[in-house]
Design a protein around this nucleic acid. Sequence first.
DNA 1: CGTTTGACTACGC
DNA 2: CGCGTAGCCAAAC
Length: 147
Amino acid sequence: MRRTPPDPEVFNATVWHITRQIPPGSVASYGQIAAMIPPQESVSPDEYRRLAPFWVGQALNQLPETSDVPWQRVLSAQGAISLPGAAAEQQRSRLKQEGVPFTEAGTVDLNQCGWDGPPDDWLQSHGLRRPPSLKKPGGDVHQPRLF
DNA sequence: CGTTTGACTACGC
DNA sequence: CGCGTAGCCAAAC
């Protein structure tokens, strides 16, 4: 695994807190969650960008089974399940259960289900940053052209 | 001790 | 759309 965050306790707690904000039917990416958390002084922005997505995965991996954190709503930046083996099955079924549609390729369409982050006031009150949207500029699914 | 292996992502073919 | 690569660390084996 990659280096652990400077302050794992705080980092993990923040990841969980953010993940709890993802509404049912929506999904976020590891990198997106990482982007919401301001890098600590001891790590360069460059290093943070490279490693933090893994730290997010580690944080979710450390959740107790009894947790109420909807970890299944966190996918790779491509909308794919990154969890190995049987756990992938569980994640897919949990997502389907809450109404998240899967493509033929077995991924989730981020243009459709991608989360754009919590409301501004929530972010502000927690000292977090707005992540870039997972949706691509012209990637709308069924948005009719007007001309 | 040397090797393997990641809950990642952006980019190139 | 699938597959490979760089990045380059820390545990688990």
